[in-house]
Simulated assay, not measured.
Amino acid sequence: MRVLVTRPQPAAEKTALKLEAMGHDAVVLPMMQAQHFAAAVRAGFERSHDAIGVTSAEAVRVLAGLGPALQPHLATPLFAVGAATARAATELGFTDIRVGTGTGEALAETVAGFLGPETGSLLYFAGLPRADGFEHALRERAIDHVTVECYRMNPVGHAPETLPALVQAGPFDAVLLYSRETARRLVALMREGGLDATGVSARYLCLSASVKEVLPVGATASVAAAPDEKSLLSLL
């Protein structure tokens, strides 16, 4: 199958290699790119904290940018939203990693088993834009936390003719969508190119129901059983 990969780099290339190993033809067209704020991370680490929280592998990549300055923090308990984020943290050298089941709300429940209302504080490294599920759930549990916005996802400026050129020979068999913002940008690019959803792809594979909600009427979409790439690729 010919599959369009819309996630940011460098993750998009890793996904493309997985698809090629599965026998698919991968086309990479990132909709967003990350802008890292290393100074915000350094300032964040100066705050008193008992644990670290991350809800994306992108946040871990920002931490990696600190280089040797990260060394004193690698033994601090780190709460990762899911397996992929946990793997990235492990590869970076964190030694005490607690893994959630893929959602911010579930991660807050995991944090609550370690930190209580008066038993410590969490340093949450987050991106913009983001869903507020994790922070809302932390507030509900009265868990002391500080959010450090360490990166921003910015749209990639594709020309209006980009998508029409890619589908000139026919629609993709599938498009992989990992976030609401990526889906929004893809839909905007469709409009700019004068295309409808069926003209771009036969199927849209979404990491969550939230992503699917952004797609236009008429798009044939499926949602992964769990919010991870393994489940998403199993839809192919």
Rank of each mutant, 00 (worst) to 15 (best):
residue 57 A to M: 11
residue 57 A to T: 12
residue 57 A to K: 10
residue 57 A to D: 07
residue 57 A to Y: 04
residue 58 E to D: 14
residue 58 E to T: 15
residue 58 E to Y: 02
residue 58 E to N: 14
residue 59 A to I: 03
residue 59 A to D: 02
residue 59 A to C: 03
residue 59 A to R: 05
residue 60 V to I: 14
residue 60 V to K: 01
residue 61 R to F: 06
residue 61 R to V: 02
residue 61 R to E: 12
residue 61 R to S: 15
residue 61 R to Y: 08
residue 62 V to W: 04
residue 62 V to Q: 10
residue 63 L to Q: 14
residue 63 L to Y: 12
residue 63 L to I: 09
residue 63 L to T: 11
residue 63 L to H: 02
residue 63 L to A: 13
residue 64 A to I: 05
residue 64 A to P: 10
residue 64 A to T: 11
residue 64 A to F: 04
residue 64 A to M: 12
residue 65 G to V: 01
residue 65 G to Q: 10
residue 65 G to W: 08
residue 65 G to I: 04
residue 65 G to P: 06
residue 65 G to F: 03
residue 65 G to N: 09
residue 65 G to Y: 06
residue 66 L to M: 14
residue 66 L to Q: 01
residue 66 L to T: 09
residue 66 L to R: 02
residue 66 L to P: 02
residue 67 G to N: 10
residue 67 G to E: 05
residue 67 G to C: 03
residue 68 P to A: 12
residue 69 A to W: 05
residue 70 L to G: 10
residue 70 L to N: 15
residue 70 L to K: 07
residue 70 L to P: 14
residue 71 Q to S: 03
residue 71 Q to K: 10
residue 72 P to V: 08
residue 72 P to E: 00
residue 74 L to H: 02
residue 74 L to N: 03
residue 74 L to C: 10
residue 74 L to T: 09
residue 75 A to Y: 01
residue 75 A to H: 01
residue 76 T to Q: 05
residue 76 T to N: 00
residue 77 P to T: 05
residue 77 P to F: 06
residue 77 P to L: 04
residue 78 L to H: 04
residue 78 L to G: 03
residue 79 F to R: 09
residue 79 F to L: 13
residue 79 F to C: 07
residue 79 F to H: 08
residue 79 F to M: 14
residue 79 F to N: 07
residue 80 A to H: 01
residue 80 A to Y: 00
residue 80 A to L: 02
residue 80 A to R: 00
residue 81 V to K: 05
residue 81 V to D: 08
residue 82 G to I: 00
residue 83 A to Q: 13
residue 83 A to E: 15
residue 83 A to G: 10
residue 83 A to Y: 09
residue 83 A to W: 05
residue 84 A to E: 14
residue 84 A to K: 11
residue 84 A to Q: 13
residue 84 A to T: 11
residue 85 T to M: 03
residue 85 T to R: 02
residue 85 T to A: 07
residue 85 T to D: 07
residue 86 A to G: 06
residue 86 A to I: 01
residue 86 A to S: 13
residue 87 R to D: 08
residue 87 R to W: 04
residue 87 R to N: 14
residue 87 R to V: 12
residue 88 A to R: 09
residue 88 A to E: 09
residue 88 A to Q: 09
residue 89 A to T: 08
residue 89 A to C: 07
residue 89 A to Y: 05
residue 89 A to N: 12
residue 89 A to G: 10
residue 90 T to G: 09
residue 90 T to H: 09
residue 91 E to V: 15
residue 91 E to C: 15
residue 91 E to D: 15
residue 92 L to G: 10
residue 92 L to C: 08
residue 92 L to V: 06
residue 92 L to A: 14
residue 93 G to V: 13
residue 93 G to A: 14
residue 94 F to Y: 15
residue 94 F to S: 15
residue 94 F to C: 11
residue 95 T to S: 15
residue 95 T to N: 08
residue 95 T to M: 13
residue 95 T to W: 07
residue 95 T to R: 13
residue 95 T to F: 12
residue 95 T to K: 14
residue 96 D to N: 15
residue 96 D to H: 15
residue 96 D to K: 12
residue 96 D to S: 15
residue 97 I to Y: 09
residue 97 I to D: 00
residue 97 I to F: 01
residue 97 I to A: 03
residue 97 I to R: 03
residue 97 I to H: 05
residue 98 R to S: 00
residue 98 R to F: 01
residue 98 R to E: 01
residue 98 R to M: 00
residue 99 V to S: 04
residue 99 V to G: 00
residue 99 V to P: 04
residue 100 G to W: 02
residue 100 G to T: 07
residue 100 G to M: 10
residue 100 G to H: 12
residue 100 G to K: 05
